[in-house]
Amino acid sequence: MNVLEINNMSYVYGDVLNTKGLDNISLTTLEKEFVAIMGPSGSGKSTLLNVISGILPPTSGIVNIAGENISNLGDYNKALFRRNKLGFVFQDFNLVETLNVRENIMLPLMLKKDKVKDMIKKSEEVAKALDISNILDKRIQEISGGQKQRTAIARAIIHEPELLLADEPTGNLDSRNSEEVMKIFQMLNINRGMSIFLVTHDAKIASYSQRVIFIKDGKIYNEIRKGNNFIEYQENIIHVLNVIGGAQR
C-alpha cells in the first residue's frame, strides 16, 4: 500500500524568495519504505517536504498521505492530521527549551490530550528504545547534540505516525552522532516498520535508505534503488550527485 502519493504536483512561490518551486512532481512511496530525497541546494527538497507537511499548500496537483488528500483539509483538520499521521525531525532539533527531555517527548500526546499516565508510560518506552532513559529529567540546555536529536526523534515517533519526515536530521551533528542517529532511523524502519521520508544532501546518510530520489530545479531527475550491494548503492548515489552538482556541501 502507498503511504505517500504525489500526482502532478507543482508549487510556485508567490514572492521573490531564493528557493525555487516544484514543477509537476509525481512520486509514490510504499508503506514501511525508507526513502531519501537528494538534490543540490535550492533544488526544492525542503519545499517538497513543506508541501508534504501541509504547511505549504500545493499550487496544483494532489498530495495523498495515508489515503488522505491534504489539500482538501481545513486548518483545524490539517493540525489533527499532522498530529496523528506525521512525525517530524528537524535539522536544528527544534526542542522546546522550557521543557525537559521527558516533556518534550510527550508534546504530541499532550496535543492529543492523552491521559497523563499513558504519556508517562509511552515516553519511557520510546526513551528506552532510543537509549535516552537516563536523561529524561534533564533540561535541553544540559544535553549534547546527539542526545537532542534522539529526543527529537523520540518526540517524532511517540504517537506512532504513519510517515516520519526528516529534514537534514544530521546537519548539526558530528560524524559519530550522525551515524548513530541514522542507525536509529534504520532500526525504526526495520524493527518497527516505520515509513520514512528523509531529506539530505549527504550521500553517506542517504545510503541508509532503500531508495533515493533526486530532484533538480524542482523536477524529479532520477531515482536509485538499493540492491544487494551496499557499496555499489553508495557509489551510484555519489555518481548521480556529481552529475547534478550536489556532491559537495
Binding site: 493540525a79 489533527l80 499532522r82 496523528n84 517530524f88 522546546v96 504530541p108
Partner: peptide, 16 residues
C-alpha cells in the same frame, strides 16, 4: 515565533 511555528507543525491547533 519559531517555537509557535514548530508547535503548529507538530499538530497543535490554533485554538490550542
Amino acid at each position: 515565533e519559531s517555537m509557535f511555528g514548530i508547535l503548529l507543525m507538530l499538530g497543535m491547533t490554533k485554538k490550542q
